[in-house]
Design a protein around this nucleic acid. Structure first.
Lengths: 175, 175
DNA sequence: AGTTACGTTGACGTGCGCGTAAAGGTGAAC
DNA sequence: GTTCACCTTTACGCGCACGTCAACGTAACT
C-alpha cells in the first residue's frame, strides 16, 4: 500500500515561490476539496460561464479571482438563486461600468428572490395546514375503526375517503 | 361565427337517462374542465397508474371512482406529494385488505411529508436571513458610494464584494 | 361536403444541476 | 515500465410533471 507521500498537485507545484497570496492558483481538486463540491460541478460552472479558469496545457488553472467567484456562486446557490441568476449578476460585475447600476440590479434580484421565498413559505404553510387536517382525519378514522379486528364489512379505506371527499365533510388533506 | 349551441359531449350523451349519479361517467374534457387540468395530465395520470378509465372504442370513459381518485391526486399534489407517493397510497387502498395497515401507511406518509415541509421551511428561513443580510450590505454600499457620479477609481463592484467575501467582513448573502 | 370540436397514440422537448460512464492523457513514485 | 493519482473531453442519463407537436379518427352540425 502506497501512502500519500506529500503528493503535490502537478499544477500547484510548478511554482517554486509562493506568490503574494493574491496570485495564487488552484487546481480543480484543490478548489473542489476546499468548498466540498465535485470537480464535475466546477467544470459545469465553467461551461455555464460562471468561472473562467486559465489553462496550463489542458489542465485548468483557477485564479484567486475564480476562487472568489466560486464563493459567490456557492452562496448564491444557498439562497436559492439559479445558476442563470448568478451568472447574470456576475456578468454585470465583469462589465465593470456603471457601479450603481450593477449594485442596484443585484439589489433588485435579491428583493425578487426574497419575494419568491416568501411566497414559497406561504405555500408550504398552506400545505402544512392541509396535511395536519389530513392527519387529524386519519387519526379519527383509526380511532373509530377501533383497535379491533379489521375488515368490517368490506368497506375499503378508499371508499371511505372517497365518500368523505365527495361530500366535502372534513376530508383528508390528500390521498 | 358559430356559437356553441348546447354542444353535448359525445360520450356523455349516448346515455339517454341520467343514472343515479353514482354511475355517471365523464369524458376526458369534462374532467379536465371541472378540475382545471389538461387532458394531457389525465392521460399522464393513467399512464402512471393513478387512474384507470374504461374505454368506449378508443375513447376514455372515466367513472365517478376515477373522479374521486383524481380529487385525491390533486389534493395530494397540492400538499407536495409526488405522483409516486400518491400512487403508492392509492394502490394500498385498492388492495382492500387490512384497513388499519392502509390507514397507518398513509398516516405515516403524511407525517413524513410534514417533516419534509418543515425542513424546507427552515431552509427557506435560513436563505431569507442571508438574503436580508445581503440586502443590508448592498444598501450600505449604495449609500457609501453615494449618489454622485459613478466610477470612482475603477474599483469594480465585483472587486469590492470579492474583497469583502475574502476577508469575511459582512459579506453579501450571495453574488 | 366541409367545418368544428372533440378524441386518440406515440414520441420527443423542457428546465435544472449536475452524475456517471467512456476513453484517454500526464507526470511522479516504486 | 507499470501503477497511482490526478487530469481531460464527449456525451448520455436522471428525476418530475407534464407541454408540445405530429398525424390521424369520429361524431355532429351547417
Amino acid at each position: 500500500m502506497r501512502v500519500k507521500v506529500n503528493y503535490i498537485a502537478p499544477m500547484a507545484s510548478d511554482r517554486s515561490t509562493i506568490p503574494p497570496e493574491k496570485q495564487r492558483t488552484y487546481t480543480i481538486s484543490e478548489l473542489s476539496r476546499e468548498f466540498d463540491v465535485t470537480p464535475r460541478a466546477l467544470r459545469f460552472y465553467e461551461d455555464k460561464g460562471l468561472l473562467s479558469p486559465d489553462r496550463n496545457g489542458q489542465n485548468r488553472v483557477f485564479s484567486s479571482r475564480d476562487r472568489a467567484r466560486l464563493k459567490l456562486v456557492l452562496s448564491g446557490r444557498k439562497v436559492g438563486f439559479s445558476l442563470n441568476d448568478i451568472r447574470e449578476m456576475l456578468d454585470l460585475y465583469d462589465l465593470g461600468d456603471n457601479q450603481r447600476a450593477q449594485l442596484r440590479a443585484t439589489y433588485k434580484k435579491h428583493k425578487q428572490q426574497i419575494e419568491i421565498l416568501n411566497q414559497q413559505r406561504l405555500e408550504i404553510d398552506e400545505a402544512l395546514k392541509e396535511l395536519h387536517r389530513g392527519v387529524d382525519w386519519l387519526e379519527k378514522k383509526l380511532a373509530t375503526i377501533g383497535p379491533g379486528k379489521d375488515e368490517l364489512g368490506t368497506i375499503s379505506a378508499y371508499d371511505a375517503i372517497a365518500r368523505a371527499q365527495l361530500e366535502g365533510e372534513n376530508e383528508p388533506s390528500s390521498a
